[in-house]
Design a protein around this nucleic acid. Structure first.
Lengths: 188, 188
DNA sequence: AAGATTATATTCAAATTTGAATAGGGAGAG
DNA sequence: CTCTCCCTATTCAAATTTGAATATAATCTT
């Protein structure tokens, strides 16, 4: 559903052909917020066109390259866009961390191996945290606050994950993941 | 891939039939960490069986109900399990928040509507945060630390999201999402 | 005791995602 | 000058997910 939402949102700004939509998405780093696969993009465009939310304006043939088909958003497309945005904000959608599942089941395997890959993972997450913070810092005076919120939010989420990984690592290293009856934090 | 990982992990504990796997997953709330669809579960079981990671031990016919096929994990299944767990921990997998995309594009629609649904969303997230914290509190003396980490991590992530939503809401309400050149936080 | 709902167990078609294949053009390296 | 790699642009088959359909038993309700 995210793909449709983005396509409609971008066509709201100006008419484009699918490949161009992808370029804009990359330009704005939308591909870091969602999965961007060309197959899915073309599929969603076809689907929207079938349903009349967008329509082809012109087809540019350059004899050599494949024809470009340029799309524009229709009235019903605009209505759908508003509906999708509001729906997405409203509904609490569980965000799945596959990492959580893996760690829940990791007690069945050799803990020293888990310890080792967790170290790598922590290092990589540290880089991500720093990277996201830098991106925020670099854009702070140059982009609208809506974009800043996205950047800072990404930073905060990765920082939350990093702290979590470090606590988990301490327990893996101490081989006390299976202990029962001890709180994660000391009472004050 | 999470589905295969869970199936293998549970079969490592004891032999089960697909429906039973689902029951255990629900019992342990794995369905809150990942998407649990029966279609996908049966598909993954068939796939693993085809590839020899698991094998049918017996088929229980009760004349009335559909036959239950009980599966056991094989040697190659155990190897795959270890590999999948380590791989999942190692690789930094982008977690996608569809909400982020929606908010990035929300400036194209009526801000008063966005404000309204954001309020609802914040209320719901507050409930989630409290709920997750309670679940942690209730289990703190009763379950292994590995499970506590999952519960506390879920709480932290939702709390991070709540704070983010509130900051965002303030900007939507003040209609300053499109302002450029102002940091999100005051310099100290 | 009839009727309604929930639990057991699995299958299926349709929707969607994935990853690779296609195919020509331009740009930079050696 | 030619080889290799990347960019433009799209399509396709295969893998996977989704949501609903199926069929019977057990339990609860009135």
């Amino acid at each position: 559903m995210s793909m449709k939402l983005v396509i409609l949102g971008l066509l709201l700004e100006r008419d484009m052909h699918p490949y161009e939509i992808m370029l804009v998405m990359k330009e704005r780093s939308y591909n870091q917020m969602m999965k961007l696969q060309m197959g899915s993009l073309y599929y969603a465009v076809d689907k929207l066109a079938d349903e009349g939310q967008i329509e082809a304006t012109e087809t540019i043939s350059s004899s050599d390259r494949p024809d470009k088909t340029i799309y524009r958003i229709t009235g019903s497309g605009k209505a759908l866009f508003e509906q999708l945005v509001l729906q997405q904000i409203k509904k609490y959608e569980q965000v799945y961390h596959p990492l959580y599942m893996a760690l829940a089941l990791s007690r069945h395997i050799d803990q020293s191996k888990v310890e080792k890959v967790l170290e790598e993972r922590i290092r990589e997450t540290e880089h991500q945290v720093n990277f996201y913070y830098q991106v925020y810092e670099e854009h702070v005076m140059a982009v609208p606050r809506s974009a800043l919120h996205l950047m800072y939010g990404r930073y905060e989420h990765s920082l939350t994950e990093l702290k979590w990984l470090k606590r988990l690592y301490a327990d893996v290293a101490a081989r006390r993941l299976n202990d029962i009856g001890s709180p994660l934090f000391e009472e004050i």
